[in-house]
Amino acid sequence: MESVINMALLVFLAGTAFAILRRTTLFSVVMLSGVFSLVSAALLVHLDAVDVAFTEAAVGAGVSTVLMLSTLALTARHEAPGTRSRAIPLIVVFLTGLALVYGTLDMPRFGDPSAPVHQHVAPRYISATAHEIGMPNIVTAVLASYRGFDTLGEVTVIFTAGIAVLLLLAGTIREPTTATKITAMEHHLVLRVVTKVLIGPILLFALYVQFHGDYGPGGGFQAGVIFAAAFIIYALVFGLETAGNALPGRAVRILLALGVLIYSGTGVVSFFFNKNFLDYSVLGATAQAGQHIGIILVEFGVGMTVAAVMVSTFYAFAGQNPPIGDEEW
C-alpha cells in the first residue's frame, strides 16, 4: 500500500512537470509550480521527512508563488513562441537521462536498511541525540548543534541573497512619499475580514513552530517562512503602505542582519569558555541544558533572518515602479 502511494505521488509529480513544460501562459506555469511543490511536500511526508515537507509546503507553495506572480506582473504574462531548434536539447537530455539511469543500476534499492548511507554518521546522531542533546527531534539537533557550522553557512547564504535582491531592486523602488496610495484590495470585504481573523493565528502558529522545533517538526527555517507569509498576506490585502506601517522596511533590514549576528554571536560566546565555535555545552549549568539554550538561540536567529529576507524581498518586488495593480495578484 505504501509503495502505491509513493508511486502515485511520483507519477503526479512527473505529470505536473510535463504540464509545466507544455504551457506557455506563464501564469499557469507559476500556479503549476505551486502544485508541484505541494505534491512534492506530500511525497516528502511519505518519505518520513516531515521537517523538509513542512519547509517545502511553506516555501514552495506559499512564498515562492507570490514572488513569481509579482515578477510576472512586472514583466510579461506569456511566453513567446520558441524559434530555436528543439531537437538538440531533446537529444542531449535523453542521453544524459539514459546515462543517469544506467548509473542508478548500481545504487542500493529504495528503503534498503543496509545501504551505505545508513552505516556511517547517521547512526551516531540517532543513538547519541537522546543523551548528548536531550531533545526528541533529531533533525533539529543535527541542524542546530551537530552541524551548526554548516547551518551558519546556509543562513549566511540566505542573508547574502537577501542583500543582493535589495541591491538589485533598490534603485527602482518607488518613493513611498510620492506614491499614489494603492487602494490594495479595499473593495474585497470578504478577504479583508478573513485576513484579519487569520493573521493572529498564523503568527501564533509561527511562534509555536519556532519554539516547538525541539520536540516536533519545525524550527527556525519553517517559522521564519510562516512569519513572512503572515506579513505578506497582510501587505497583499491591505496594501504595502499599511504593512509598512506595521513593519517598516527599515526595521526588516535591521532584523535581517541581527539574525545572523545572534547565530554567530552564540557561537562566539563559547570562545570565552575555552571551547570550540558553536559548542553550546558551556551555556547552561549542564552540557545538556547548554545545548538546549544554544539551539533555541540559534534557531531564533535563523527564524529572524529567514523571515526578514522573505519580507524584505517581497517589499522590494511589490514596491517596484510601475506599481503592481490590485487585479494582478
Binding site: H188, V190, L191, V194, V197, L198
Partner: peptide
C-alpha cells in the same frame, strides 16, 4: 473552514 470558502470566493 475559514480559508477554503474564502479562497473559492477570491
Amino acid at each position: 473552514f475559514f480559508t477554503s470558502p474564502t479562497s473559492t470566493h477570491a
